[in-house]
Design a protein around this nucleic acid. Sequence first.
DNA 1: AGTATGTATTCGGATAAGCGAATACATGAA
DNA 2: TTCATGTATTCGCTTATCCGAATACATACT
Lengths: 107, 107
Amino acid sequence: MTMPTIDELNLLHANICQALGDPKRIQILYALFESPLHVTALADTLITPQPTISRHLRILRQRGLVTPHRDGAAVVYYLADERMIHILDSMRGVLRDSLARQSSMMA
Amino acid sequence: MTMPTIDELNLLHANICQALGDPKRIQILYALFESPLHVTALADTLITPQPTISRHLRILRQRGLVTPHRDGAAVVYYLADERMIHILDSMRGVLRDSLARQSSMMA
DNA sequence: AGTATGTATTCGGATAAGCGAATACATGAA
DNA sequence: TTCATGTATTCGCTTATCCGAATACATACT
């Protein structure tokens, strides 16, 4: 277990952020926060083709954001770490304030 | 000031995450957290061509993550909201734990 | 005006990300 | 094994992102 260098950590960090940089994937994380779901259920919930969901899940899985568990023929996906949702919520707070700042600029 | 819909908010959120999804831009944010800098100073600090820095700054500016202030011929950039750094630090915490989990899997 | 310094943008080309459609793979039941 | 269901991957294509190099734009000073 070699410690990552600062630059390597930066890269991993950027990779995680990049994984979060797609509306569908954010939707997926919030959906899994409410409850673990298998792929088809996710596809139905988000009204999105199953292959598309699978591709997004692979990205999230590779970055360690979700965790798959086999359940017979199905695969149930879990949020890997609920703290990530709190982080996303914090970001929304900052985002809202940012929007508010811009609005007040208009006045 | 019309309230954004859920989907619009998701898109804005994703856009912010996407802006964070580049190692150089993360470096920039951390550098500006230590102290506001003008473009050339940033370029020197990060050992990166000035046009590259300017392009990254535009992305961060458009997403409301940094704020420019003119100072004569120079433009000093400020971190728009220090909470974003705390959020990034939180993400690093989650990232470290994720790496630790993967390491223990190997054992 | 002209010059120097600092910042932003454009252009061209390489790389990566996204999606729909089709298909391959995995599991469980008959 | 065969079929049905569920999941993952591949293919072809379009769009977006990134960088270096060159260049345009902005400000201050003489």
